[in-house]
Nucleic acid binder design. Structure first.
Lengths: 205, 205
DNA sequence: GGACCAACTATCCTAAAGGATAGTCTTCTA
DNA sequence: TAGAAGACTATCCTTTAGGATAGTTGGTCC
């Protein structure tokens, strides 16, 4: 079974290669960028599985995945990552990846996953998909504000005036002013500009 | 020689362990969080070297490094990371780490680095330290603005009024207004709030 | 039903922002 | 050394923001 591993972290690449090779059933080739990977895929006749690191030169999010899939003529391509979220995993699958491997998975599971994917079965670790959404850190500020206030804050962040905001939300200008005031009070902001910055800082918008 | 590896990425942890063990000269123990690492360091008499992943539960930047160093009573502790910058590496050394290992280094170099650090020598890969600073992307917007305008923009981002800004910069309020106007023109912002958001978005401040 | 609350509206007012035009410096340069 | 350019100031004006106070509506809780 022939594998292609692509990762710019040589340490990971080499140790992983050593590990898989030691299983006796895999013939592993490696490279350090998406470009090299596509070239190898194009030149060589057949890898049973291609494993791409998510944060590797040339990847540019999942655009690199699409390129690799295109180059591979339907043979399995999977994504592995140490940092990517559940959402990214889902998107990778949607874009045609045969699987998603978080680097937090056990090495033993990896072997099975690779066998699985090489025969064309989609693989994503269940515990990863079922994990709690890892960003409940957004609402500490969002919880303070009502829905309307969040809409208004969003407008502030886009530099809208009260009048424009009133039109957009189909409200009177005075009402917007009121929301801006309470919003500033809740966020402890000195004015609309400050409020917008606090919202931005908190990662909203 | 006894090593302790701490990383929440099991895949990396296990393959790395397998690789180092295969060298025949290392006895490797592992754990998956800073807390576990500190406990092991505390209980056990002597590791020749402790290797901590930079982005691991409990690390909280380099605060975790300080905790581990404290727990280790002067025995060598090093940081490894796949993403951290040169600046982080420097800071780690400043805070007492015996070394810094990017995951982009070759596995073979790792073995030498580990030997080196275990005998108390500081190790950071030269090519990593000499690498170009990877954030010259700040000035594309900053270059458009004069020094004064940047100062004013900074004030906007802190939610200051023109009057406060005038006091801070020891200028007249009208002058601040002028700067705000030209600044908005250059940034193509509709108003001060929008300008502040653009500045924030661009990573200034 | 009454108390309460949230969202919204109205009127009135002051302060701040935003814009225009003109003028004073200093500094750099043709 | 004239003149262009940048930073700053002055005066005048309009629009917007921000704040206070009071009133309406619709829903929820007891």
């Amino acid at each position: 079974m022939r594998l292609l591993l692509a990762d710019d972290h040589d340490l990971v690449l080499e140790t992983l290669t050593a590990f898989l090779s030691a299983q006796g059933e895999f013939e592993v080739e490696t490279c350090g960028s998406l470009e090299d990977a596509c070239e190898k895929i194009g030149n060589d006749t057949a890898y049973d599985l291609v494993l791409l690191d998510y944060s590797m030169p040339g990847m540019d999010g999942l655009k690199g995945l699409e390129k690799a899939i295109e180059a591979s003529f339907g043979r399995p391509v999977a994504i592995m990552s140490g940092t990517a979220t559940k959402a990214v995993a889902q998107e990778a699958i949607d874009k045609g990846a045969i699987g998603f491997l978080p680097k937090t998975m056990a090495a033993k599971s990896l072997v099975n996953a690779v066998r699985f994917m090489a025969i064309g079965e989609t693989y994503v670790p269940l515990d990863f998909l079922n994990a709690e959404e890892e960003t409940p850190e957004l609402p500490p500020i969002a919880k303070l504000l009502s829905e309307r206030e969040l809409q208004v804050l969003s407008g502030l962040c886009r530099g809208l005036s009260n009048k424009e905001l009133a039109r957009e939300l189909d409200l009177q200008e005075v009402t917007i002013k009121l929301h801006v005031k309470t919003l500033c009070r809740k966020l402890e902001a000195k004015n609309r500009t400050h409020a917008a910055m606090i919202g931005k800082e908190a990662g909203l918008f």
